[in-house]
Structures are given as structure tokens and as C-alpha cells.
Design a protein around this nucleic acid. Structure first.
Lengths: 340, 340
DNA sequence: CTGTTAGCGCATTCAA
DNA sequence: TTGAATGCGCTAACAG
């Protein structure tokens, strides 16, 4: 009932063999104009679309790309998927999208699932791009893939990202330039994000370069509710000599922290400056606008697909590609309050 | 190279026929404990996962669901997809995700693509669920599908949504209760959103019930930049007798409008109250929190998949299912300013 | 309990 | 230029 019209239906209708229909559809091999016209007419009348399954079984290769991301509800990933989708569609491919919920164990699970679907290639964002059995598995199987947002340091892997360490330094320097000396780095779980780790390294480097002491990092579940964030911050921001600036390892966290800080009765940026990472578009709409590191999220997804096709065609490089980032100024940071 | 290990490889290794391997894998038919053990050992050693393609070709039915949404970067859709994905995975299915960019013409295109992939069913959000040739096409082909966010009024179609008209009325009544009389409805393009249309109807009904005159709707591209929104609002909010409250047909629009209104030098909610629709989580984090209609976006996606499986199993109802919504209070609305 | 085989939709080789 | 035949990986009907 669903798709009863196959290549055989068309062949019968056009009065030719299925081989001829196939040739016309794919433009392979010679066909007479007359037969071709009959086939096209039949295809049109029957609204025939060749089954991708039959085609795939033959070639053992689908026109499908697998996408693995931590979460769809984080705009930064949704944005890259939007770019991936657009670019894949432009190349006649569709997307199998899976989410890991930041669980490394699930990475393996979904990748197995996608391999069973015979995807032509994968675009993924993983927790750890260096020490990662799932990626080793892909390497061993010769399955092409490109990482997005991940920045492998030791392993030789194709990736599209920004220089997160430099970005962390840039943001920290901006706060130092405003006179802040007690700057706290608030991070999502390091275990699930190499971005978070690298941005923190940049923060540390910039602090040291400025002759300042990096604070111990405040690592928390950035998906936690506001209550959790408030209690985590209470001790740190209630004490004397409290930080005057918070660098958050991603924008969602920064927005949540901003709300928590305000709930504690502190002003942003009057009492505390807050900056984020990622450049999600919502950050422009809030008031004051979120100061953050802008990265070309959509473009990163597009670029990953471009490189994935290169790999699939056998002429791609397995290297880390850095796209430019820039500091997006915003009202959530200000000159450090004078010591009281 | 990619997946050279087939059911035949396993059969050879286990010293049995491919039928036996299939039986063990699927638990169909009887097998002796001894042979089953050998097969399982071979499967494990070879890391065999049956190709979904072969399976699909046989049954003409994949374990794949097609998803069609206007955009991935709107959190309200991303959230429903997250629910769809979780529920689909729980049932051993994967998701082919496509975006239409709010272009009705593209609906047809992507649905054709998904049909060619032999999806088992579809979950979609379309521009117009009543007058829609693409959905007619699915009906004609007997392909099961469930709509999300759409609320078909005339056509008999399975859908999971909230009562958008009632929600529009609820929100409007809340503003009326605060003393507002000049309430403007700001809408995304009606042509691409029946939600927008229905919410507007609810607004009109509530205004009339309160003895107030509905203003002409301000319809604009909600993806437009802040400049576009600012100029669209300039005339309306600059004039005397200007609206004291804006009801925006979705949350992203509400956030953008809030920014635009502030840029014009007006205070929110001091001069102008603003409310949105959808209940995206970011709305809780901004300050003041966005007043909106909260709907169970993720749950709607999950529920759609549950109902889709019912349809696929032949015992589902093609009816509109309303999930509960509620008014989420927020600091963006306040008592109407006294007439100046 | 197990093996053989047909056939799903298509691309492709080999004949004609 | 076209058609017949094969086989991709798998499930299911049938034989044994």
C-alpha cells in the first residue's frame, strides 16, 4: 500500500525492461529518445521515485549521513545540525540524527546503530575526541567522519572547530582589560566537553600572563536547575573578596548563572560581570546582551559536511580545521567595581 | 571495507546456515542451545550487526521515522524533536530529520525524499494542516503520520498540540485583568503557522468578550533582524494612544520584540507589557522572565511517536489530541500604566 | 531443529 | 540500443 510502484511497474507501463528504466533514471548507458520519452512519461504518471533501499542494497552505500550530538535542545548544536542538514540536502543526502545526552557510553551505542544503517559518513560531537574507543572503531572500519566543536590534540582526526584555548584567553583578557582581577571560571562538566577543558586552559594561560591567580574552577552540571546553580554560587559570591567576573564555559550556562546571580541580589554587570562561550543567537536578544565568543556555528556544520564528502571521495585530509571566532561585546560585562 | 561482515560470514564461522543465524538474531523459530551458543559466539567475535538495509528490503519497512519541521534553530521545534528522538530510540527506531525553512513548497520535496527512504512513518509540523496537498498525498499513500503543533480544524488528521485558541484567550485575559485595554497582537507570518492564526483568534475572542477592540494584527517575519522589528514597531509605539501590551505569537518573536522595544527607549514592562507563546526554556532565564504560554514541547514529541506507532500498528485514531498548557507568569507583563 | 531457497528493488554485467 | 539475468543482505516459507 505504501509504495506499490516499483521500477517494474514503470517498465511495464513504458513497455520496456527494468534495465532501461534504470538507465533512464540514472543517465547511465545509451537510450533511444523514443524509449526515454515513454519511460519519463510513465515515471511522471506513476509518480515513481526509486527506492533508496534497493539502490543502497546494491551499492552497499546509502545517501545518508549520521549525526551524533550531545543534545538537540542546546542551540549551539541545533545550529550546527541546521548547517549540516542544509549542506547534506544540497548534495542529495539525508540525515540520521541521534543525541547522546552527554553520555559517552551512548556514543558507542548510537554509532553502532548508525553503522547498521550503512550511513555513508558521520558528523559528530563527542565528549573526548582523543581518548575515544568509538572513534577508534570508526577508524578501524574505515568509515569516514568529521568532528564538530571537538578539537583533538593528540589523535589525527578530521575536525571543524574554533581555537577554544585562544578563545578562552581572548575572553579572559577582555575582562582583565576592564580591571577585573578575581575572575572565576565556571565550567560545564569537563568529562563531557573538551571545549570546556580547552577554554579553561586559555583562561588559565591568560590569567597567568596577566600576573593574576586563576581561581579553582567551579565545575557543575550546566543542565542543573537554577536552584542548583544558586546554591553552588552562594558560598563563592557571598564571601568577601568574591569574584567580580565569571567566565562561563558556554552560553546556556552563562544565561543560567546570570539568572542565579540576580536571584542572589547581585547586579549584572554592576556587581558581577558575566561572559559566555558559543555565540548562540538568543544571547543577542537578552538584556543586557550576553558578552560571548561568537563562533560560526552553522557554518561549522556546513563545513564539516564539505570535508566529509571530501573524505568519502578519498581526497580529504584528516586534520583539525580552525574557523575564526571573535569576541562579541555585550552589556553583561563592565569595568570592575571598585574595591569596597 | 566498511561492513564486510554479513550474515553469511557469521554462518560460516558458526558452521550453520544463514537461516539459523537469522533465527537466533531475531528469536524467531526454534534453535538448539548448542547451535545458538556457536552463533552467538561468532556474532560476538565478528561484531556482527545485521544490516538494516537488507532487513528493510525484505520487509519493505524500515525502522526509520521521518521528521519534518520548519527549523531546527527554533528551540520549540528542537525540543519536540528531542522528545521524538528519545521515544523513537526507545522503540528501536532512528530519525531522518529534515527542515523546510518555513517554505510550504519544500514540505512536499522533503516528504517525497523521506518516502523514497521508505520511512515507517512521519512526524511533522507544517504550515497549514487543513489545506495541504502534501498531507493529502500521505493520506492517499496510506503512510502513517502525526502532526505536532498543528491543529487541523477541518481535515481528519492525527495531531498532538495544545488548544492554541484557548491559549491565546488565556494570555489576553491575563493582560486584560491587569488593566490593559490597548493590546496589540504581533504575529509571525500567518501563511507559515496555523498556531499563529489560532492564537490570534483566541486573542480576538478574548478582546471582544472583554468589550475591547482588537487592534489590526502586526504581521511580520519573525526571523527578521532587530532593525526590521524596530522600524515595524516605530510607528505603532511612537503614536499617542499606543498599545500598552503586546501579545507575540511565539517566544522567539517576543524576545526579539522585547529587545526592539527597549532599543526604542521604552521600558518592559513599565511602558509596555510583552507576552509570548511556546514556553521555551530560555524564557525563564532572561530578566525579567518572559510571560508566556507553557506547553509540554518535549512531551508533545514523545506523544506524537506513541500515537504514530499506534497508527503503524493499525489501531490508532486520526484525531487531534490536546495536551494541557498553562500560563507561565513572568516579569515582562505588569499592570497597565496609568493614562498620561 | 535446521538447511535450502525465493524474493524484496535496484544497478549492472553480459548477451543479443 | 535493449533485455535477461545476477546479486547485494536479509527474512520467511517450505523441506527435510
Amino acid at each position: 500500500m505504501a509504495r506499490p510502484v516499483t521500477i517494474r511497474t514503470v517498465a511495464t507501463r513504458a513497455g520496456c525492461s527494468i534495465a532501461t528504466v534504470s538507465r533512464v533514471m540514472n543517465g547511465t548507458g545509451p537510450t533511444s529518445a523514443e524509449v526515454e520519452a515513454r519511460v519519463r512519461a510513465a515515471v511522471s504518471e506513476l509518480a515513481f521515485r526509486p527506492s533508496e533501499i534497493g539502490r543502497a542494497l546494491k551499492s552497499l552505500r546509502t545517501r545518508t549521513l549520521g549525526v551524533v550530538i550531545p543534545s538537540l535542545t542546546n542551540p549551539v548544536f541545533a545550529s550546527s545540525v541546521a548547517g549540516i542538514e542544509a549542506q547534506a540536502r544540497a548534495r542529495g543526502h539525508v540525515l540520521l540524527v541521534t543525541a547522546t545526552d552527554y553520555d559517552p557510553a551512548r556514543e558507542r551505542e548510537v554509532v553502532e546503530t548508525l553503522i547498521a544503517q550503512s550511513v555513508a559518513g558521520l558528523v559528530l560531537t563527542v565528549a573526548d575526541p582523543d581518548d575515544n574507543p568509538t572513534l577508534d572503531h570508526l577508524d578501524a572500519g574505515g568509515i569516514p567522519y568529521v568532528l564538530v566543536y571537538n578539537e583533538p590534540k593528540r589523535a589525527v582526526r578530521a575536525a571543524v572547530t574554533v581555537d577554544n584555548e585562544a578563545a578562552g584567553a581572548t575572553l579572559t583578557q577582555a575582562l582583565v582589560a576592564l580591571g577585573h582581577t578575581r575572575i572565576l571560571f565556571v565550567a560545564g562538566r569537563f568529562a563531557t566537553s573538551d571545549r570546556s577543558r580547552l577554554r579553561h586552559q586559555g583562561y588559565r594561560a591568560a590569567m597567568q600572563a596577566a600576573g593574576l591567580a586563576p581561581s579553582p574552577v567551579l565545575e557543575l552540571d550546566y543542565l542543573g536547575d537554577a536552584d542548583a546553580h544558586r546554591s553552588a554560587l552562594a558560598g563563592l559570591l557571598g564571601a568577601p573578596g568574591r569574584p567580580t567576573a565569571l567566565v562561563c564555559s558556554n552560553d546556556l550556562l552563562a544565561l543560567s548563572i546570570t539568572a542565579a546571580v540576580r536571584d542572589m541580589g547581585l547586579a549584572v554587570p554592576g556587581d558581577v560581570s558575566i561572559a559566555g562561550f558559543d555565540g548562540i543567537s538568543i544571547g543577542r536578544l537578552v538584556s543586557p546582551a550576553l558578552c560571548t565568543i561568537d563562533q560560526p556555528t552553522r557554518r561549522m556544520g556546513e563545513r564539516a559536511v564539505e570535508r566529509l564528502f571530501d573524505l568519502m571521495d578519498g581526497h580529504g585530509a584528516r586534520a583539525v580545521e580552525h574557523l575564526p571566532f571573535h569576541l562579541r561585546p555585550g552589556g553583561t560585562i563592565a569595568v570592575a567595581p571598585s574595591p569596597s
